[in-house]
C-alpha cells in the first residue's frame, strides 16, 4: 500500500523531510482512482518544509540550552557557604595569624635586644673615648699649658674623630714638650752664662716663649697669665718657667 517511509530499517531516525518527499503512493484501482496525485504531492511538500523548519528550530534551541547549561556549570556556586565551613576556615585563619604574630614578636624581641646591646656598646665606647680625650687633654695641659680645645667642644663627636683628636693632642703635647725643654735649656744656659751673677730682679721677662705657637684665641689669655705670673712674682728665670704650667688654670672649662 504505502512505500513504507521508514521501512528501510532506520528506526531510530524518525520521519525526515526527505522521507516525505520520496513517498510514492501505489496507484488505486481503475474504479477508485484515489487522491489527485498533484494535490498529494503539494501537501507532502509543505509538510516536508514545515518539518525541516521545526527540526532546525529544535537544533537551535538545543544548542542554546547547552550553552546556558555550560554557563551555569562554569559560574561559581552562589550557594552560601555552610556554617561549618566558615568555622573551619576561621579557625585555620586564626592559627595562621597566631603563627605570624609569634614570628613578629620573636623578631621584635631579638632586634630590640640587639639594638639595646648596640646602643650600650656605643654609649660605653663614647664614654671611654671621652675619658681618653679628657685624660689626654689634662696631660697635654699639664705639659704645655692651656689646651687648644676645651673638653666641652670635643664631647659628642664620633669615636673616629675623638681618636684623631687624641692622636693630635699626643703629638701636640710631644712637640710642646720638646720645644719647651729646648727653650728652657737655652734659657738656663743663658742665665748661667751671662746673667748668672747679676741681680735676679734685673732678669727681663722672656719676650716670646716658643710655646706660643698655639691658636690665637687662647693666646692673649695665656700670655697675660704668663707675664702676670712673672711680673708679680718678679723673680728669676726659673720662676718665670714655673709660670708656664701655672697657666693651666686659665684653660677654658
Amino acid at each position: 500500500m504505502t512505500s513504507a517511509p521508514s521501512g528501510d530499517g532506520s528506526t531510530g531516525r524518525g520521519l525526515t523531510p526527505a522521507d516525505l518527499r520520496h513517498v510514492r503512493f501505489t496507484r488505486a484501482s481503475m474504479l477508485h482512482p484515489g487522491y489527485v496525485e498533484t494535490e498529494v504531492d503539494r501537501v507532502m511538500h509543505r509538510v516536508a518544509e514545515d518539518l525541516a523548519r521545526h527540526m532546525a528550530e529544535k537544533a537551535q534551541l538545543r544548542e542554546q540550552v547547552r550553552t546556558l547549561q555550560a554557563q551555569l556549570n562554569g559560574a561559581p556556586a552562589h550557594e552560601p557557604p555552610s556554617e561549618q565551613a566558615v568555622r573551619i576556615l576561621a579557625s585555620a585563619q586564626q592559627t595562621a595569624d597566631n603563627y605570624v604574630a609569634e614570628a613578629e614578636k620573636f623578631s621584635r624581641q631579638v632586634t630590640g635586644e640587639a639594638r639595646a646591646e648596640y646602643e650600650e656598646a656605643v654609649r660605653l665606647a663614647r664614654e671611654n673615648a671621652g675619658a681618653i680625650i679628657q685624660a689626654a687633654q689634662e696631660a697635654a695641659a699639664r705639659l704645655t699649658g692651656p689646651a687648644p680645645d676645651g673638653p666641652d667642644q670635643s664631647g659628642g663627636r664620633t669615636v673616629a674623630e675623638l681618636e684623631e683628636q687624641v692622636a693630635y693632642l699626643k703629638a701636640f703635647g710631644q712637640a710642646c714638650r720638646v720645644q719647651l725643654r729646648s727653650y728652657l735649656e737655652a734659657l738656663l744656659s743663658d742665665v748661667e752664662n751671662e746673667w748668672g751673677h747679676a741681680d735676679p730682679a734685673a732678669l727681663p721677662v722672656p719676650a716670646r716663649p716658643p710655646a706660643r705657637r698655639i691658636p690665637e684665641d687662647a693666646d692673649g689669655d695665656r700670655s697675660t697669665t704668663f707675664e702676670a705670673n712673672t711680673a708679680t712674682e718678679n723673680q728669676g728665670g726659673e720662676d718665670a718657667v714655673n709660670g708656664v704650667p701655672a697657666a693651666t688654670g686659665t684653660r677654658p672649662a
Binding site: P76, H78, P80, P81, A85, V86, R87, L89, A90, Q93, Q94
Partner: peptide, 10 residues
C-alpha cells in the same frame, strides 16, 4: 573573622 571566611569561601 566570619565576614572574611564567608567571603573567601564564596
Amino acid at each position: 573573622l566570619y565576614f572574611y571566611s564567608h567571603l573567601f569561601l564564596s
